[in-house]
Computed example of a mutant assay.
Amino acid sequence: MLPQTKLALVIAGNFFSDEDNADPGLLLGYLPEELAARCEIKEWSTQPSSHYSMSMTLAMEGMFESLADEGYAGIIVVSGSGVMEEMAYLVNLLWQHEAPVIFANLMVQGRAGVKEGLMNLHCSVLAALSDDARGRGVLLCSSGELFAADDVTLADPGSPDNAFQSPDRGSVGKMLNGEIKFFCEAKRPSFLARRPEELPNVEIMLACLGGGDILISSLASSRDLGGLVLAGFGAGNVPPSWVPTVRNILRRRIPVVITSRCLLSHVHKTNDFEGSFDKLTEMGVMSGGRLNPYKARIRLALGISAGLTDDGLSLYLLNRPVCDDVKTLYK
């Protein structure tokens, strides 16, 4: 544990489902005295997580940067859990400090309720004070376990034991007998050479049986559309009726990405037919690789805002290096 370190406990939304006006100061009273003394509350927002946007989360990450510059050894974020995985993922794509950022899931439903949520707060504080947490980027704490932001997903908000999960590799650490144990490294992303500023409007179009034509036509006619993520069937296939509309969107120089709507799938070539992954990429649609649609949307928005070229965006979506500010990667 780092000597005489201070942690920032950031309130970024409502955090107790059974208390409409929960006092953030009460949180410190639930911690052991020696841990509470290390924490300073920073009230940033009291909005429900469903009211957040990517732009708000980008502004929040900028506030975290200021806290790191002020010398805080770690940042713990408490908020609603509904979009916590997306918030954590966005922050992780920009966070290059050694100090950890840990999103604590206090919004626990089911049999454990508030007690389980406060255990996650305790776990988050211990982890943020641990030397082993430094350099691991952004983590999310739920069920007494620590998950890497690049892989975690909200699986069952009604479960006190498995609300958040990491399908690919499980948790990277957990609290055991009152101590934090890390047992694998968290993957760090390829960082952008420029900081994103004003984020474009990037939408997700979900493929479903024989549907979506009206919605995708409406998106194509919008002047505000800045990017589009297609959540395709299986390995990345969409209805053939979408193809002319997607082609028109590409002609407007609006980036389009193909992902899979399936939780554990990734896009790849399977068959060569109209609307297939292979045909879409031949048209100029970018591969989202193993990204789910929500994470692809965040990467696409950040990459567009940072000024990546089409080649740069294609690399960034696949987590390839884009850290050099060169003409082939940045406009």
Score class of each variant (00 low, 15 high):
221 S>P: 01
176 L>V: 15
169 R>S: 15
200 P>C: 07
188 R>W: 02
203 E>G: 00
229 V>E: 03
170 G>M: 04
230 L>P: 14
181 K>F: 13
219 L>P: 01
173 G>F: 05
210 G>V: 01
178 G>I: 00
217 S>N: 14
207 A>E: 03
218 S>P: 00
174 K>H: 12
220 A>V: 07
214 I>V: 12
174 K>L: 14
212 G>S: 07
228 L>R: 05
210 G>A: 01
205 M>C: 09
202 V>N: 03
199 L>F: 05
200 P>Q: 03
172 V>N: 11
228 L>T: 05
176 L>W: 03
218 S>F: 02
235 A>V: 05
178 G>M: 01
230 L>N: 09
211 G>E: 09
179 E>K: 14
190 S>L: 01
212 G>T: 05
233 F>S: 10
229 V>R: 09
197 E>H: 12
236 G>Y: 07
178 G>Q: 06
169 R>W: 10
238 V>F: 09
229 V>Q: 10
174 K>V: 06
199 L>K: 04
207 A>P: 00
223 R>Y: 12
205 M>L: 08
214 I>Y: 05
209 L>T: 05
194 R>S: 02
233 F>D: 01
208 C>P: 00
169 R>A: 13
229 V>P: 12
184 C>Q: 15
198 E>F: 08
226 G>S: 04
170 G>P: 07
193 A>Q: 07
205 M>S: 12
211 G>D: 07
183 F>Q: 04
235 A>N: 06
226 G>L: 01
212 G>K: 01
204 I>Y: 05
199 L>N: 03
205 M>E: 13
191 F>T: 02
194 R>I: 06
194 R>Y: 11
217 S>V: 00
183 F>C: 00
182 F>E: 11
235 A>S: 11
167 P>Q: 03
197 E>D: 15
180 I>F: 05
235 A>T: 05
166 S>R: 02
185 E>Q: 14
222 S>E: 05
228 L>H: 01
195 R>S: 15
223 R>T: 12
221 S>F: 03
218 S>H: 04
240 P>N: 06
206 L>E: 14
202 V>Y: 06
208 C>V: 00
185 E>S: 14
227 G>Y: 03
201 N>Q: 12
217 S>W: 03
164 F>W: 08
188 R>V: 04
173 G>M: 06
189 P>D: 04
181 K>L: 14
227 G>P: 06
225 L>D: 01
166 S>A: 11
237 N>E: 14
201 N>P: 00
166 S>D: 15
239 P>H: 07
203 E>H: 04
229 V>H: 12
180 I>Q: 10
170 G>W: 06
201 N>M: 13
175 M>N: 14
172 V>K: 08
175 M>K: 08
190 S>Y: 02
196 P>E: 11
197 E>M: 12
215 L>Q: 12
219 L>M: 15
216 I>V: 15
196 P>C: 08
190 S>D: 03
184 C>G: 05
189 P>T: 01
237 N>P: 03
179 E>L: 10
181 K>E: 15
194 R>E: 13
187 K>T: 11
174 K>Q: 15
215 L>G: 02
184 C>N: 10
182 F>I: 11
181 K>P: 00
204 I>N: 00
